[in-house]
Amino acid sequence: MMRTFVPHAAADEAPAGWGVRRAARLDFPGPAALAADPVHTERLRVYLTDLLHPYGLALDEAALARGGQSYAEMGEALIALALPPGESVDLLVLAYAVPDIAPGRATTTRLSHVCPGAPMAFAVTDQAATAPFTALRLIRAYASAPAMSRALLLIAEQPSVPYDAHLPRTLPHTASAVAFVLGPDSPFPLTLPTAPPAPGRVGAVSPPAGGGAGGAMALSAPGEAGADTVRPALGGADAVGALIAAAPGPVTAILGPGLTPAAAPGAHRARTADPGRPTTGVWWELAAEVAAMRDAPAAAPPHLLVADRDAASGALSLAALTPALEAAVSGSQP
């Protein structure tokens, strides 16, 4: 489907009440159907062998034989779960950190073909746990364009990486994916808070190796991401605390695996993501919060603050949601 765009104009804004409309999540404990295809496996073997060769690394044949997951298959299952009949989206963005078993495939192009609405689609990656937050920023940016306000965010991870790259890495315990349907007039508007740049960082062009001033905050906002700028022990607690204090009601903080409740001072409640879900963890928990609100509506539901930190860079990312959702579903892929 042909889609055309003109650049963002000064007056363009995401539609009123733009935010989360629905959430879905799934575990995929078994390998993908694609993994059983010997032609694909041989193609993958060649691709990975050649990928590893310049780095002096070798393929783990036993790990390759165990298979792994395909984000295309996972995405298709989530699309079916998140979008009821008759509903479609204009944009689909896939965020992931760990590559899947189809490293050369334009997976989102395939997903665009099977997703209602034949959406514009692309992927955001190579940013660890920050990638889903960047995807949300992009989706919000596109939401101000005509006929682009309805979007589907897919966040996926899978544990099969059949080689040792001799670098620290945290792989998930299982394959899982979370979907968020976003759109206008949402009962759950979404914001992506930013914070002032870390002291002394603005204008710096040669960041010191190994980090900067202790206690400074590092958010994933543009110009403020602290990849090699700040690696505080309690990154961003002041910023998170300020956001919680500014909320008009109680706040439930959903914290990434590397954060403790101390990272969210003043939160009414803190929910920490499973370390076995390094990329999807906070979003998995957010989807559960959404489901809980659906099942047991409260008179004054809490605001939700999602915070996750990229373990490698120390960058802290935030997303804030106001309460009341249309629906949520969850399940497990057989």
């Binding site: 896939l94 334009a106 192009t109 906002a221 960058a315």
Partner: peptide
């Protein structure tokens, strides 16, 4: 890509990959 960005004074920027449009 991140290593190159660090070397060119871009360590403060949000660095990521986009694609799946061949």
């Amino acid at each position: 890509v991140r290593e190159v960005c660090d070397a060119y004074g871009l360590g403060h920027a949000a660095v990521f990959a986009v694609g799946h449009h061949a």
